[in-house]
């Protein structure tokens, strides 16, 4: 592929997917700088490997696969601050109360999860991949994905229950600022 054509295709990919990739990166890494780095690494690799992308329709999952690769590679270098797998709760049959929480609290709860749990959970909540697709991408059994999703979600529910947040205004009630 000629360079101008290659750059044009990369530019299209960036235009279509950079926001999603940045947001996923942010939720995975928990910091703006790391999310920018991860997004950039993803597109630089995509640039190099563009010849492998056969269908434009599959570009999103292809980019997410590259992002996943870099995420796990980067994290393996860093000291892990997440909780051990064993300390995550088993799925509970207790009734979870609806709650409110904000973006930062959600991020703190996400940061506590091991990467293996965080990645499928973030993709699940972004509605980008089904659990079958997550299993394929991570190359792990369906049952493992289901278990990780369930335990990860249980962790979020327990951590975020009944906390006041600013996002409450976004979802539940009109804000006073509108009445100014």
């Amino acid at each position: 592929m000629e360079s101008p054509e290659l750059q044009q295709r990369v530019a299209e990919l960036i235009g279509q997917h950079y926001e999603l990739l940045y947001r996923v990166s942010f939720r995975l890494t928990g910091s703006t700088a790391d999310a920018e780095d991860l997004t950039q690494q993803t597109f630089l690799t995509a640039h190099q490997k563009l010849h492998q992308l056969r269908e434009l329709e599959s570009a999103k999952s292809w980019l997410l696969a590259i992002l996943r690769h870099h995420f796990f590679r980067n994290r393996s270098r860093a000291a892990r601050q997440s909780v051990p797998l064993d300390s995550l709760p088993e799925p509970s049959d207790s009734i979870d109360e609806p709650t409110v929480f904000d973006s930062e609290e959600l991020q703190l709860a996400l940061n506590e999860l091991p990467e293996e749990f965080r990645f499928p959970l973030v993709l699940y909540y972004f509605h980008e991949l089904s659990y079958q697709e997550i299993a394929t991408q991570l190359d792990i059994p369906l049952g493992t994905v289901m278990s990780r999703l369930s335990r990860g979600k249980q962790h979020l529910r327990r951590r975020l229950i009944a906390e006041e947040t600013t996002i409450q205004a976004l979802i539940i009630t009109p804000t006073s600022s509108l009445t100014r």
Binding site: F26, R27, V100, D102, F126, R157, I171
Partner: peptide
């Protein structure tokens, strides 16, 4: 209740 909680989580998760 979990569905309701999930909907809120998804909304907040994506608001970046």
């Amino acid at each position: 209740k979990r569905r309701e909680c999930d909907a809120r989580l998804a909304m907040i998760m994506q608001t970046i």
